[in-house]
Design a protein around this nucleic acid. Sequence first.
DNA 1: CATTGTCCCTGGAAGC
DNA 2: TGCTTCCAGGGACAAT
Length: 270
Amino acid sequence: MPELPEVETIKNDLSQYIIGRLFTGVSVYDEKLIQQYQIGLFYSDLTGRRIVDITRRGKYLVILLSGEKTLILHLMMTGSLLLNPEIKYERSSRAVFRFDNGDKLLYMDRRRLGRVWLTDDVELIVGKLGIDPFNAGFTVEELIRIMWGHDMPIKAFLLDQTYIAGIGNMYADEALYDAGIHPMKKASSLSSMETDKLHTAIINVLETAIDSKGASVDTYQRPGGEMGYAQFNFRVAHQKGALCMRCGNPVQRIIVRNRGTYYCSYCQKQ
DNA sequence: CATTGTCCCTGGAAGC
DNA sequence: TGCTTCCAGGGACAAT
């Protein structure tokens, strides 16, 4: 599922091919993909615009266009973007973007939960997001500040995009394991040492995953069709039945705020 | 305001 | 084997 490392990889892979390109056309097979825009207007408003830059905000892909417009994509759980794919059409194809050099970008999404916006007000879409873990402002002090007063489980806190943007279910579990913190522990009750470990763990886990080009669990693949291999570094995420690398006890699975949560009950104490 | 619950969506797995 | 049911989860929104 595309979380920060996957979206970052997609952004990095695409940038050299699409920056400077002109949209010559777009076909939307599933109109529910396009948010807050009438479909005919979406076609006419996008066509003819040039891609100025591609950035990431949390798990959102932000494509700056000429003429003060921005195309924003969210892949949710099963979305992927494929550049000049072999396949022509599949059930899960939702849209195809065409460029002036003949390149095509296919938006695939098996569960059809992803969304696309065309907007002149980026903040309206992503303005509610919290700090990005790779923002220089994401210090231990800042983490302490944003956690203060929150009685929710730390796992729930990490998943809430309005506090920190980009961490999803897999990397929340990995970071908490790395820091040795129980997922149900209340955010406000973390000691300064635990907060320090968590801060380091978040950055390390995400950096390692980006180095591995994301995790190919479920449908994630890179725009060129290659798989990521971050899942091979996972120590608890999706590792039910596996043994903890530190203590040898089996990895447990519990439900925290309706999300499957993997952890080691021996290494991660309340 | 802070936190929790429900729903969206589909294909693969599990159960009978 | 074939059918039904369950489950995965990010985020919007409703409920508490």
